[in-house]
Structures are given as structure tokens and as C-alpha cells.
């Protein structure tokens, strides 16, 4: 049932939606091509008067490119979802709950929605005018341009969240997962972590490159590279501690920021073995209900939370970590 819903949503949001959006973004300007001036207004002041223009092929081409990038993300999302629905037990990297791909879906819908909205807005604002200077847009016209794609992404993610909760191991009992066998007189602390071999050197190269660019005057590019390099550095390693208190995850060489998940929030833990595409911080516990912290492929700890959310983090010896957490969860439930 879950697999069928997954396929249906995958085709709807990853296939039909980008086709419809691309059709609108391309079809409407083509239909009114002869009614548009050779240069069209593409930027407006607060009173709705145009203050920027481009050749219509360029302006509408950029909007269409945005749709294509968004559609690519949606098609990728659809492919992963279909792979998952065919074989949920082995279809890594999306063996984790379907929600972990919600970020990709939201990005795809927002980009393709924004491209379509821009294309339609430019076409309608420049329709039947002699030159771009006489085009007019409602001063509040920017609101649907922003709200439309956001609403589209929210609806898409909402559909996925409502219809597909999780795939593998949903409904399994705690006894099905690894256990350590702690006695009542024992206390334990599990410390582990994982390291990405290429992220730290890459970030250092990036920082050096940014310094050179800064000296050469490319300040904006240098700042961008510094931001990306620091992001790489943050995901170059991760340290995890689990005990009767809960699970604590520290990121990067400075062990900051810290994610704390109290034991009372955890339903169970299980070890996984994640494969390709497993790098980066994906999802969000608060927004999408799933977050995955991947610094390398291989052993990963998955925490099922009591509020149906899921947290994944790559760690060495995930089996021991999961076993300890499950023991502590059972001990706590016995006490309460």
C-alpha cells in the first residue's frame, strides 16, 4: 500500500507537476510571442513601473532555465522514490524514510514554480505594449511570485508527509532491534563518530583559494567560497555520544553546533549501512520530520523518535550504539 502510494505521488509530483509547469512557462510566452515587444520589462519599482529590461528571448529563457533546474530535481526525486517503492529493503540511499527526500522535492517545486511564475508574470505584464517602458505590474505583484512557489512546495511536501509516513521497519517492535543486555546495576556511555576523508582537505583548499581571490579583488566570490568551505568543514566529521541521558551529536572540528535528542523522545534505534549519495546534511527534524547527517557512506545509526520523526547519523560501530540506546529506552519505559 505504501509502495503504491509512493509510486502515485512520485509520478504526480515528480512527473506530471514539472511537465505542467514547464508547459505553462513555455506555452504561454510562445502563444503570445508576437504580442510582446522585442525587449520586455523584467524588473519593477515599488509603484509597479518597470526599471529594467532584457531581450524577451533572454528574459523568458532565464525563467525557463529555472523551471528546467527545478524539474531536474523533481525527476531525480521521482527516480529515487520509484526505486524505493520497488524494493524498500535494499533501495539505499533512500531506504531511510521517504521524508528524507522531502528537501529535494521542496527545492524542485520551489524552483520550477518560481520559474513558471516569473515567466507568466513577465508575459502578462508586457502583453500588447509598444515598448517595455509602458509595461505595468501591480505593486503587490511580487507577492504571488514568492507565495506561489512556497505554497506549491508546502502542498507537495504536505502530500508526502500525510500519505507516506515511513517505509522500512515501521511498526516493528523494540525487541526486533539490537540489544546490549545491560543489567539494572549497569550504566553505559557509547562514544563514536565518523569522518569524511575529503571534506576537510577540500575546505582548506577552498579557504586558501578564497584568500587568493580576495586579494585579487573578487570579494563576493571569495565570501561565497568561504561559506561553502566552512559548510564542508562542518560536515568533515561528526561525534556522537549515547547514554541514559539521550543522544548528543557534535559537528565538525569545533564540535559545534550540537544536536541533543533526549532519551524520552526516542522510540528505538537501528543500525543501517548507507551507500552512494550519502554525504551532507539533508532534511530537517522540525520542517520535514527527518534529518540525515552523512559524512561518509557505511554504518549509520537511525533513531526513530516517538513523534514519528527520524534522525540518521553516520557513525562507526552503529550496532553497539543502537543496542545501548534500545536498552536504555526499554529501561526507561520499565521505570515509567
Amino acid at each position: 500500500m505504501v509502495a503504491r502510494r509512493t509510486r502515485l505521488l512520485a509520478y504526480l509530483l515528480g512527473g506530471v507537476a514539472p511537465l505542467c509547469l514547464a508547459g505553462l512557462a513555455l506555452g504561454v510566452p510562445v502563444m503570445y510571442w508576437s504580442n510582446l515587444p522585442s525587449r520586455i520589462a523584467d524588473h519593477w519599482n515599488l509603484s509597479g513601473r518597470p526599471n529594467g529590461s532584457q531581450p524577451k528571448i533572454v528574459a523568458l529563457g532565464i525563467a525557463l532555465a529555472l523551471v528546467v533546474v527545478g524539474a531536474s530535481a523533481l525527476i531525480t526525486w521521482m527516480t529515487l522514490m520509484l526505486k524505493l517503492s520497488r524494493n524498500p529493503s535494499t533501495a539505499e540511499p533512500v531506504r531511510s524514510p521517504v521524508r528524507s527526500m522531502a528537501g529535494l522535492l521542496a527545492t524542485g517545486l520551489m524552483l520550477s514554480g518560481a520559474g513558471t511564475a516569473i515567466s507568466l508574470s513577465m508575459t502578462l505584464s508586457n502583453l500588447d505594449v509598444n515598448s517595455w517602458q509602458t509595461a505595468h505590474q501591480d505593486p503587490l505583484g511580487f507577492i504571488p511570485l514568492i507565495a506561489g512557489p512556497l505554497a506549491l512546495a508546502a502542498v507537495g511536501v504536505g502530500l508526502v508527509r500525510r500519505n507516506i509516513t515511513s517505509v522500512s521497519s515501521s511498526g516493528a517492535a523494540l525487541s526486533d532491534f539490537p540489544r546490549l543486555g545491560l543489567t539494572d546495576s549497569e550504566e553505559a556511555l557509547w562514544l563514536s563518530g565518523a569522518r569524511c576523508t575529503w571534506a576537510a582537505p577540500s575546505s582548506l583548499v577552498g579557504l586558501v583559494g578564497a584568500g587568493v581571490l580576495w586579494l585579487l579583488g573578487g570579494h563576493v566570490l571569495a565570501v561565497s567560497i568561504v561559506a561553502v568551505s566552512l559548510g564542508f568543514l562542518e560536515l568533515s566529521s561528526v561525534r556522537v555520544a549515547a547514554s541514559a541521558v539521550g543522544v548528543m551529536v557534535r559537528y565538525g572540528p569545533f564540535a559545534w553546533p550540537v544536536t541533543r535528542i533526549p532519551l524520552k523522545r526516542i522510540a528505538r534505534a537501528e543500525p543501517l549501512d548507507l551507500a552512494p549519495l550519502s554525504w551532507g546534511y539533508r532534511g530537517s527534524l522540525s520542517m520535514f520530520g527527518t534529518a540525515a547527517v552523512m559524512v561518509r557512506r557505511g554504518p549509520t545509526l537511525r533513531l526513530h523518535l516517538k513523534d514519528n520523526k527520524t534522525f540518521l547519523v553516520t557513525v562507526d560501530d552503529a550496532v553497539t550504539g543502537a543496542a545501548l540506546i534500545n536498552d536504555q529506552v526499554q529501561r526507561q519505559s520499565r521505570i515509567s
Binding site: 545491560l182 546495576s185 553505559a188
Partner: peptide, 9 residues
């Protein structure tokens, strides 16, 4: 690493 202590030892 797993640090395991037992109060009865």
C-alpha cells in the same frame, strides 16, 4: 567505544 560500569562489582 563503549564504557560500561557496574555498581555491584
Amino acid at each position: 567505544m563503549l564504557l560500561r560500569i557496574d555498581t555491584t562489582l
